[in-house]
Simulated scan of single mutants.
Amino acid sequence: MLMQSATVIMILVSCMGLFGLALFSASRRSKEIGMRKVMGATVAGVSLLISREFLVLVVTAIAIASPLAWFLAKSWLQDFGYRAALDGWVLVEAGAAALVLAVVTVGLQAFRVAKVNPVEVLRED
């Protein structure tokens, strides 16, 4: 029960950090997004533009972390008398879950920013 609670808290903190980073990135690029919308960009296109950079980072992190996690878990489990088999699907599921969480977290923020009226954004100083 304690490990599950700690895991949920870690996931929530990481999602809040990713949400904050997406919010900061979108606010920094608000004029660019406004210009793209004035020039005819769709909400889906702007959302994809914002989400793409975060998804590349998440996929890169998964590609780096998966072999490292495989090696560390395999070497740690080797010391036990009753060995548990380490299947590759566990790492695939963890990577897929991280990717889904990133898509949901960043995608919602990107969609919200893409729906803002470009006239209000471009009028700001």
Rank of each mutant, 00 (worst) to 15 (best):
C15W: 06
D87Y: 15
A61Y: 05
A114H: 02
R83S: 03
S27G: 11
V58G: 07
L108P: 00
W70A: 05
F54L: 04
S25F: 14
A98V: 11
E32H: 15
L68K: 06
G17W: 05
G81F: 15
L18C: 03
M10I: 04
A96V: 12
T42N: 10
Q78Y: 15
G45C: 09
M3Y: 11
S14I: 12
A85T: 03
S14L: 13
S51G: 04
V13A: 13
S27Q: 12
V58P: 00
V59C: 09
A69D: 01
A97S: 08
L48H: 08
G95H: 01
P118K: 05
G88Y: 13
A65V: 01
G20S: 07
S30N: 02
F19R: 03
G107V: 02
T42Q: 10
T42M: 02
L49V: 06
F24Y: 15
D79T: 04
L86K: 08
V90R: 05
S5E: 14
G107C: 04
V100I: 08
L101W: 07
L21H: 05
S30E: 11
F111Q: 05
V104P: 14
Q78V: 02
V119P: 01
A61R: 03
S51C: 08
A41E: 11
Y82E: 03
F54D: 00
V116T: 12
V43I: 12
L55W: 06
L48C: 14
G17L: 14
R36C: 08
L48T: 10
F80K: 02
S14E: 14
M16E: 07
M39Q: 13
L49H: 06
T42L: 13
W70L: 13
A6Q: 13
T60S: 06
G107D: 01
V103L: 06
T42V: 03
K37T: 12
S25H: 11
V8W: 14
E53W: 05
G40H: 05
L108G: 02
I64W: 06
V38Q: 04
A84D: 08
L2Y: 07
G34L: 01
Y82N: 02
F19Y: 07
M35V: 11
A41R: 03
G34H: 01
L101Q: 10
G45Y: 08
A44Q: 06
C15M: 04
V59L: 14
A22C: 14
L2C: 09
V92S: 07
A73T: 09
F19H: 07
L55F: 09
A94H: 07
F24R: 11
S27I: 11
A69W: 09
R29H: 12
L72R: 13
L91Q: 02
E32N: 15
V13Q: 01
A85V: 07
